[in-house]
Design a binder for these strands. Structure first.
Ligand code: FES
Ligand code: FES
Lengths: 153, 153
DNA sequence: TTAATTGATATCAATATAGTGTCAGTTTAG
DNA sequence: CTAAACTGACACTATATTGATATCAATTAA
């Protein structure tokens, strides 16, 4: 059972990188190379995030993506919803018989309670929190990229 | 995002039915018809549960499946593990760079914490608890099946 | 002008989930 | 003793989801 798919995974990591390099545009190519993600796939993810106003972009040479929204307002829950749809524990168990009485069904109740808990957890985690939790060393890595790519030219 | 797959769903519902009719054998056909599940698919699910010693079976006419284990010891968590594999939020985010230092990675930490919470929730829910939560009306339905199928012959 | 970029889409491949079919062996009612 | 109702054990198909690639037009800075 996998809770986060690649899209969500890549989205979080891309946002962390944009968060670490705030103020400047970072190209999809750069993110893809440094974080080791498939380029075209990542681009799709980034575009989806643009559509949801999480990031902005600039076309052309020196273009790329930039994080504008406050990192503390980007919740992992939202990312999951964007890339994996609303969390639902089960479509609707117990169709035929018990479901005749949806509102009363205690099973559904129990399941929905768990749904609530899970959602709550993911709602707590924001890109901002994750950024702050990164150790200095990690942070530097995220901000500067890998060495080959950064050799002072 | 779907947390419970059909297999888990069917497994829970089948167990509830077996739990409601404890002591007697219930055939896959009966469960399938009364709970509206695909017969062969359900059979696969039942066999899997036998392999994990959750239920026992009897072949031949008047045969079927029976719940032997204490319903309070059958946790939804175990069912999820059987039919969907261990819960893992993400394979392992942040491969290339940060992962050089797995033990230190705070992101992984955060993710694993949530994993813990989710697992905990599903560990709390047992077939026994669900059975007790069923209202009397539901219980009767589960135990007696639908009317057409039960007409005293 | 050209190379580095994003926008927008179309398509494909891989994997996971859901469901069906078949046949051999067991049991019990008649 | 036999037929019908069962499970055991697989092999198979279908559908959906996820992951990834490819193409081409438009934009921009050097
Ligand atoms: S689960 Fe659908 S109503 Fe009980
Ligand atoms: S997530 Fe793999 S180590 Fe940080």
């Amino acid at each position: 059972m996998k809770v986060l798919t690649k899209k969500t995974d890549y989205a979080i990591r891309a946002l962390l990188m944009l968060g670490a390099k705030r103020g400047s545009y970072v190209s999809a190519r750069t993110i893809a190379v440094e974080q080791d993600m498939p380029y075209q796939f990542l681009r799709g993810v980034l575009q989806e995030m643009i559509r949801h106003d999480l990031i902005v972009s600039k076309e052309g040479v020196q273009g790329g993506f930039m994080l504008e929204k406050d990192p503390d307002e980007i919740r992992v829950k939202q990312l999951i919803e964007i890339f994996q749809g609303t969390v639902q524990v089960s479509e609707c168990m117990f169709r035929k018989q018990i479901c005749a009485n949806r509102s009363r069904c205690v099973l559904r109740h129990e399941i929905m309670r768990i749904e609530q808990v899970v959602n709550n957890e993911f709602e707590q985690v924001t890109i901002g929190k994750l950024l702050r939790k990164l150790t200095l060393a990690d942070h530097v890595m995220l901000a500067s990229g890998n060495m080959e790519a950064t050799e002072n030219k």
